[in-house]
Amino acid sequence: MPRDLRRRLVSTVMTSLSALSVLVALVPLGLLLFFVAVQGAAAISLDFFTQTPRPVGEPGGGMGNAIVGTLILCGTAALIAVPIGVLSGMFVVEFPQSPLAPAVRFAADTLNGVPSIVVGIFVYAIAVEPTGGFSAMAGGIALGVMMIPLITRTTEELLRLVPASLREGALALGATRGRAVLTVVLPAALPGIVTGVMLALARVAGETAPLLFTAFGNRFWSTDLTEPIGALTLQVYAYAISPYDDWHRQAWAGALVLLALVLGCSLAARAATRRLERMHR
């Protein structure tokens, strides 16, 4: 029957198209990973991890200070975002009848969608201008603001997954609500929350825009939170738009390290999630 044939043909074509679209997405991914791996591997050396950037025209040097800077910025961000994120997530689960609960959820979703450059402007206004200078602290706050919604939502989801029987058991034993949550429910959800924090860290570690006018960049070693600090992303940006071949090579090496850091973090988190899922089953 020609009509049937046509229907089957259309179906085959559309099915192949859907397969093709997966390919369309995977080709740029492959190209990107390929270029970063090849160009980055060619440029990377031990110096890259231990040296600071060299002035224009002097070959060599590295991004050791920027790698340390990224770690410090992420650490500061986590110090700010984890308590706020976890506690606000708890609030949403524990006090669902409060009118604040949907507001928190809405705010977290909105915050999650706020462009990172806007977060940069905001933190410049509240933490750079009033304190009189660009600083690692301001950079950490900017990344922290970006982390908060991720952690709030993760905490909320994971606390909901904890079986109600656990909580009720604790309450039945005479624990107060707070005690039950902090000593029974939270520990049960904790591995998942840690995973969520790692995913959030992986995301903010790759951010550049919010650091442009907060952390500002630094060519020297610095661990001082009140001074500007270097970051891998800032350094890669500065080198990428420069016209020096030597700096371009450094940019690729920086991108490789950044990608390894970010993907490593999210892969570890993913592996942990899978193990957790298996445990729960």
Partner: peptide
């Protein structure tokens, strides 16, 4: 669920309400 609203519960409520307000306040502040 509603066990006696003891003092620790008040503290817990405060402990979580402040960060919750902060998240909402952050969006407003931006």
């Amino acid at each position: 669920r509603r066990s006696r609203p003891g003092r620790t519960d008040g503290v817990f409520r405060l402990l979580t309400t402040v960060p919750a307000l902060l998240v909402v306040g952050l969006v407003a502040a931006i």
